[in-house]
Simulated scan of single mutants.
Amino acid sequence: MSDIGPESAAGKRTLRRALLATRNGLTADDVRESAVALAARTLALPEVAGARTVAAYVSVGAEPGTLALLDALRARGVRVLLPALLPDNDLDWGEYAGEGSLARVRHGGRTALSEPAGERLGPDAVTGADVVLLPGLAVDGRGLRLGRGGGSYDRVLARLERAGTRPALLVLLYDGEVVAHVPGEPHDRPVDAVVTPSGTRRFR
């Protein structure tokens, strides 16, 4: 069902621009209220309720907020892993120990990211997660996720596949970001579910 070729790449770029423009129009209150709803819905999922290790990320800008969720997971005794961007766009991982354990890191001209300041655990640390939360801009009815185009999480998904592990793959989005169609490419892997402030949709 994948679309292959330059049309796919161009379609993704067009969709990304439209979705980012909508996100940039959100108010701080919109982002904050959505983050509270997303945390509650995500924490109630059975795969999250039973998880010992969750690989997550720290939201930036107008992304659906994750900090409330990270703190709630940690309060439950869950081990939370957070990514650190490597020069080749792959991801290393470190453990979240509260907001004070984060460092703001700027990679070239990009937006500064909040990354774990402590010990680096290596790119393969993600293979020990029971749940992996993936950032995204959209997901469609097949579970295909639209990322920002850097390829970091494509590498994560490929690493999980090589390791033979099957963590639950979840994307946190705003309600309007569940779309009819995301242009697909051969390397794209569907996610298991999308969580939005108003509900959860499962794909497999």
Rank of each mutant, 00 (worst) to 15 (best):
M1F: 09
D3S: 14
I4D: 15
G11I: 01
T14H: 10
L15R: 10
R17P: 04
R17I: 07
A18I: 05
L19T: 13
L20Y: 01
A21C: 07
D30P: 14
L38R: 03
R41E: 01
T42W: 14
L43M: 15
E47I: 04
E47L: 11
A51R: 10
A51G: 13
T53K: 14
A56R: 05
Y57E: 09
G65Q: 14
L69W: 11
L69H: 08
L69M: 13
R76G: 04
R79V: 14
R79N: 09
V80A: 08
V80T: 04
P87G: 07
N89T: 00
D92H: 04
E95A: 11
E95S: 09
A97G: 05
S101L: 02
R110G: 06
A112P: 15
S114F: 07
P116F: 07
G118K: 09
E119N: 06
R120H: 00
R120D: 02
R120G: 06
L121T: 02
D124H: 08
A125K: 05
T127W: 05
V132N: 07
V132F: 10
L134D: 02
D140H: 04
R142G: 06
L144G: 10
Y153I: 11
D154M: 13
V156C: 12
V156S: 11
R159N: 14
R162K: 15
T165Q: 12
V171C: 05
D175E: 13
H181C: 03
P183C: 10
E185T: 12
V191P: 11
A193P: 06
V195S: 00
T196Y: 13
P197C: 11
P197H: 14
R202V: 04
